[in-house]
Structure formats: C-alpha cells, structure tokens
Design a protein around this nucleic acid. Structure first.
Length: 235
DNA sequence: AAGACGGTCAACCGCTCCTTC
DNA sequence: CGAAGGAGCGGTTGACCGTCT
C-alpha cells in the first residue's frame, strides 16, 4: 500500500537523543513499537532501536579499535563470516555496526591484499568460510528451516567435500578441522542466544558474562588457530 | 585556493527469523 | 500447522570530512 512514510529520517538531533534516552531509561529496552510514541518522537521503531543500540546505549566504546580487538575480529570473521552481531557480541563495548564498518573500511582491504599472496589452499579455505549457504543457514541452529533437516544435508555436503578433498590428495586434518568448526559455531550460537535473552533483562550482567565468554572463545580460537596454521602450513 | 577523490560512519532498507494466535 | 506481525540482521547508501593534485 504505497503510503509514503511520515516518519522523520536522517541524522538525529540532540533533542531527539535526549527524548529517546529518557524513554528507554524509563521503560527499558524492548517494545520498540511503543518507544516512538512514548518518547514523543516522530521516528519509526527501527530508527529508534538502531540509534539506541549503536549510539546511545551505555558502555559503548568509541574511537579506534585496539590491536587485540582487531585481532579478535579477524579471527571471528574467519570463523563466522559476516555475522556481525555475533562478532560484536564477543567484543565488549562495540556494536555490530561499528564492527561491520571497521571491517569494510579497514580489514577487508587488508585481507584482500594478504589474500593475493597466499596459497591456493588458503583461497579454498576462504571460499568455504564465506560460502553464502554457510553464512545464511548453517549456524542458525534455532531457525525453523535449519534446525532439523538442514543439518544432515549440510553434513552430506561436507562429506562430499571431504571426499573431493581426499581425492585431491589433501590430508584428513582438513575434515576434522571443519567438523570442529561446525561444532564450535553451534556452541557459540547457543551461547549468543542465551546472552541475547539475558541482554533484555540486565545490561551490566551481560558485560560480565561476555567478558567470561570472551576469554573462553579466545582460548578456543587459539586451539583452532593451531590447527588452522597446521593446515595452512604456517608457523 | 579549489575541485576531485577517497575514506569513514550513521542511518536506511529489505529481508529473514521468531513469536504469537 | 499456517498466517501475521514484530524484532533483528546484514547490505547498502549518502553525507561529511580529510587529503591530494
């Protein structure tokens, strides 16, 4: 019904920020449908939510990314692909939009230039990590479409890939690596779902839990890296 | 000095997923 | 079980700013 939206668009004013902040502090996060009217804002709920999440929420870090943050982003992106909210969830104080922007403006270029000088096998790994089917479905364990019947199919595809790889003469480290990757991805998805549920209850609790998770994932990633480098023939 | 160009970031859009009935 | 509406996500856009020529 091609009605032109009457909602205001574009940059937020200080006054609008103030109204939104006060409203969220009063009524809490969530129920974004009611926030605009409660706050007296002529903005759509999406716009309000985004503004709060990316800019107004407490504990948001601004400014340059630290080296360890960049390192973690690169590792997690290798593991998860463009799952920006999952990646941002492991980096306290950073939003998905921040991470995505930083990736697009800094890291993707860096990666591309490194990409050009890596081996053909590295290319193969990258293709798999960035496979659209994996990005859209394989980690979304809670989704209707991928919960029951998708996984076996994915495993079949994996087996086929593994067979191909064996035919190409690459050792079985690769298949165990991908199996581990799948399991880890699912575990992380579960953790993140739990965190999101908690997120709605209490923000400061989330920060603590995320810190714990941050450490856990980092250790796991270090383990993964050992295998990864083994596969790549790196250090 | 000024126009062109490229980089960054906030915000929007369209789609998918989840929840409720 | 399916439909509808709400919530959330990732991709893309466009304005702004700094640098280069």
């Amino acid at each position: 019904m091609g009605r032109v939206s009457s909602f205001r668009k574009g940059s937020w004013t200080e006054e609008e920020d103030k109204l939104l902040r006060r409203c969220v502090e009063m009524y809490g996060e969530g129920n974004w449908r009611h926030i605009p009217s409660r706050a007296g804002l002529n903005r759509c709920r999406k716009s309000c939510r985004l503004r709060w999440l990316n800019y107004l929420r407490p504990n948001i870090k601004r400014g340059d990314f630290a080296l360890d943050e960049v390192d973690l982003i690169m590792r997690l992106h290798r593991l998860l692909g463009n799952r920006w909210t999952l990646i941002a969830g492991r980096i306290p104080g950073r939003t998905a939009n921040d991470v995505k922007n930083y990736w697009n403006s800094h890291l993707s270029k860096k990666l591309r230039s490194e990409h050009n000088i890596t081996s053909t096998f590295t290319n193969k790994f990258h293709e798999k990590t960035h496979n659209p089917t994996m990005n859209s479905g394989w980690l979304r364990g809670t989704s209707k479409s991928s919960s029951g019947d998708q996984q076996p199919q994915r495993e079949e595809e994996e087996e086929e890939e593994e067979e191909e790889e064996e035919e190409e003469g690459e050792d079985e480290t690769i298949s165990s690596f991908w199996k581990k990757l799948l399991v880890m991805g699912e575990e992380m998805e579960t953790n993140s779902t739990n965190l999101r549920a908690d997120d709605k209850k209490k923000d400061n609790v989330v920060v603590e839990e995320e810190d714990d998770l941050f450490v856990g994932v980092d250790e796991l990633l270090q383990d993964m890296d050992m295998e990864l480098w083994g596969v790549f023939g790196g250090p």
